[in-house]
Simulated scan of single mutants.
Amino acid sequence: MPARETAAATVEAPALSPRRRQLLDAALHVIADHGLRGLTHRAVDRRAGLPEGSCSAYLRTRQALQGALTEYVASALLADVDRLADRILACDVDDDGEGVRAALDLFLHWLDQRELLVARLELTMAATRDADLCAILADHRARLIGLVEGIMAATGKEHSSERAEALVASYDGVLLAALLKPAAERADFLSRSLQLLSNGLAGAPGA
């Protein structure tokens, strides 16, 4: 069977020094465990196991810390979706079920490693009151919508930017609902929900 055509351009995560990555990974866990109020330079230093003042040496203000973490979280999620696209596009054109299976694997991974999802929720709420954070998330969301539309086009689905945006929003809702469910119920809920979205908003294969 022929392989699917290539979709959107590859997502490149921002280059980070090892120490900056260590600090942002620590910040990710701090905000996931303690919320935005708990995100302080001192808390990040403690989580990273570094001397006090290490985080502020790289990110001097709370605003700088929040902005860098927002970029870090959004880029990580976008890179995951880019790898999902590679997996889907490497499949035979007749294997439409692989898209659902690939998305299910990714969503379950995100739910098992919940820090990214919880941090994104915290930062999204903060972005409703912070124009700088809102701009970062809006830029990444636009890139995500473009990537999803590219997948839909390359796999022969009915597609448009509006349809891709609605699909991304629907996936967000499914992920949030799954996050609130008992762990034992998540896989079945996600499988059914993703199949419904694939049959609906994702559109039927083109002629």
Rank of each mutant, 00 (worst) to 15 (best):
E158V: 09
A204P: 12
S54R: 13
K157L: 11
A135D: 07
A26F: 13
A126C: 12
L167T: 03
R60Y: 09
D95L: 08
L197F: 00
A178W: 03
S170L: 06
P51F: 15
S56F: 00
L201K: 02
A153S: 13
Y171G: 05
S170K: 04
G67V: 06
A131C: 14
G146H: 00
A13T: 13
H29I: 03
L179A: 13
V168C: 03
E158Q: 07
L108H: 05
A126N: 03
R4A: 06
G200D: 05
A79S: 12
L106N: 03
V148F: 11
S198I: 05
L78R: 04
F107E: 09
G67M: 06
S54M: 11
S160H: 02
E162V: 15
D130Q: 10
L133V: 09
V44H: 01
Q22T: 09
M152G: 08
C55D: 02
E185Y: 01
D172H: 07
A177S: 12
R46S: 08
A183E: 13
W110A: 11
R192L: 04
A142N: 15
R141H: 11
A166F: 01
L111M: 07
L111D: 09
L65I: 00
D112S: 12
L108V: 01
D172A: 10
L36D: 15
H29F: 02
R46W: 14
P205C: 06
A142I: 13
L117I: 04
R19S: 15
L69N: 04
D80M: 12
M152N: 04
R120V: 12
D132K: 11
G35H: 00
P18Q: 06
T70V: 10
A15S: 10
A169T: 09
R37N: 13
G200P: 09
A79M: 08
A177H: 15
R141D: 11
A57Q: 13
Q195P: 10
W110E: 12
R19N: 10
L50C: 11
S54C: 09
E5N: 07
E158D: 13
L144H: 09
I151G: 01
A43Y: 00
